[in-house]
Amino acid sequence: MSRLRASIHASLLLLPAVVLLAAFTHVPAVRTFIGALYTTPRGNRPEVFIGLGNYRHLLDDPVFWQAMANNVWYAALTIPLSVILALVMALAVDARLPGRAALRMAYFTPTVLPMIAVANIWLFFYTPGYGLLDQVLGLFGVAQTNWLGSRDTALNAVIAVAVWKEAGFFMIFYLAALQTIPHDLREAAAIEGASRFTFFRRVTLPLLMPTTLFVLVNAVIGAFRLVDHIVVMTRGGPDNATALLLYYIYEIGFRFWDSAYAATLTTVLLAILAVLAAVQFLFLERRIHYR
């Protein structure tokens, strides 16, 4: 009897959270999957079931493929660069050096700033002619460049912003993990004659693997999710050179109001993320030592 009452109480306590989650996450997600199977209702034209018609359209959509290719390149650069940079920064500020607290703060600052603010700062860096980047490069005689306006440089320019923003965040996780590695392991290795590099490769890196998995999952999600700076800096341009999947979804959904096609793209994006997460867990999990 009291067990029953306890479980009723528990259910009631969980109810508000469940209602919120369902109303704002689960139901819309399911509606999205379903919506992808219909046409977009417009004016006096009601929606029509067309099965996989939207997906067929997607396969023929050159902008989708461009956004896909952009996103793959974007992920392939931001993920390793931000993770490696995070690890290097964490190792640097973990060492005993004067002023390391200030250095930690400095590395972490980009994370605290909103992405919109970051994007505006970088807009200034990239301004052709009198932007910071061109001014510095001008000292070495490099001609001025329209970093965000040129098809060749725009995507890499926004990648640099994302790496700058994300690395500090990942650094905090690496730093926390580094500080849990007991100091006497280093001393034991030193007595055995292990160089700093050997110690790093054979002890530090393996002990950081759980953190690396966590950071990688976050980096992958971030690579498909973080588009605020695209909105501020390039709006996908020039000529879709910086259109990422999520930004393309935003354009389809809220600029062209094609909700069914946006739902189709969303489903594809979710599928990609699910596959990537599963792959990471299955492949890395086995090679990780958890304490």
């Binding site: 007991p182 006497d184 392991l185 001393e187 034991a188 007595i191 054979r202 002890v203 393996p206 002990l207 030592h289 304490r291």
Partner: peptide, 14 residues
Amino acid sequence: GIAMVFQSYALFPH
């Protein structure tokens, strides 16, 4: 040319 045993043993956990 020494070996050392630490109080905490300092074994590599992984």
